[in-house]
């Protein structure tokens, strides 16, 4: 080992460079990060408070009704929703649930707001496609925990760094599926739109996006579930919610409470997934 020819090259200080870069960002952009954290905290706190204002009974009824209409008016999903939410309430996890829902909604919305336009850009520009594809690969293959470190550096601990890391983790499917959906629109559809003298945006909004809708929705569905899983991991850096209970149980090696909270997360994931899928089928 010691005499390996490869040792000619001294160790490149990648870790130092990365640290320096993050430090530089933190020093120079702290005003921005602080502003983002304060406004983000305010928005999410208010949202959770608002959700907690709704009586759990009303909340359960509303969500069940939503599941009923999403699931083509069959009874399986609504039944699961009622029982699942009653279980969460019964186990005293209602407040953490509301925090988790807030984090998932905010992270998903941000991912969609950023992801759909990025996907459109990739579909329309080969250069954008060429640049963004490897970035997405990077984002998806980098272990999720790694994002927690710069998140803490930028925003400290709490909900905002949680959402920040969740957005990075959950963004790629929406971008990829939007890109794919638009590229899959058949040549004849595009030619038909163009032959009538559509402008670029008419072609996009009247033909391409409606035809790509199902594919884009499948991407958004993925994004929501990834956001949920990252919100749980983000509890390690102080994001409140169901994940916090899981982490607490882990640290104290309490099998029982760990499973109770973990099961609540499964319930939430299934309700989110099936409801979104149901709406996508219409």
């Amino acid at each position: 080992m010691e005499n390996s020819i490869l040792d000619v090259i001294p160790e490149i200080p990648v870790a130092d460079w990365m640290a320096t870069f993050i430090d530089w960002l933190t020093d120079n952009l702290s005003w921005l990060f602080d502003a983002l954290r304060d406004s983000g905290d305010w928005v999410m706190d208010s949202m959770t408070e608002l959700l907690l204002l709704i009586p759990p009974v009303v909340f359960i009824i509303l969500l069940t009704a939503l599941a009923f209409f999403a699931g083509s008016k069959k009874w399986g999903l609504p039944t699961f929703t009622v029982l699942g939410l009653l279980y969460i309430y019964n186990q005293g996890l209602w407040e953490p649930l509301m925090f988790t829902i807030t984090l998932v909604i905010v992270a998903s919305l941000l991912s969609i707001i950023i992801g759909v336009p990025l996907g459109i850009l990739m579909a329309k520009s080969e250069i954008a496609n060429f640049i963004i594809t490897p970035v997405l690969d990077f984002m998806q293959t980098m272990p999720a925990f790694v994002y927690l470190i710069p998140a803490v550096a930028f925003f400290g601990i709490g909900m905002v760094p949680g959402v920040f890391s969740a957005v990075i983790f959950a963004l790629p499917p929406t971008v990829r599926f939007t890109n794919l959906g638009i590229r899959q629109v058949s040549d004849e559809m595009v030619e038909a739109a163009q032959s009538f003298g559509s402008t670029g945006s008419q072609q996009l909004f009247k033909v391409e996006l409606p035809l790509a809708k199902a594919t884009i929705m499948a991407g958004i569905n993925q994004t929501v579930l990834l956001a949920l899983s990252m919100v749980v991991i983000a509890s390690m850096i102080g994001a409140p919610g169901l994940g916090e209970r899981v982490i607490n149980a882990l640290q104290r090696a309490q099998v029982g409470p760990g499973f109770v909270a973990g099961f609540a997360l499964v319930v939430l994931a299934i309700i989110l997934d099936r409801t979104l899928q149901g709406f996508n089928k219409d």
Binding site: E188, M189, E191, A192, P210, L211
Partner: peptide, 11 residues
């Protein structure tokens, strides 16, 4: 233009 596979927008 009229297209071979009709080119109608399905949505």
């Amino acid at each position: 233009m009229v297209f071979q596979n009709f080119g109608l927008f399905p949505h």
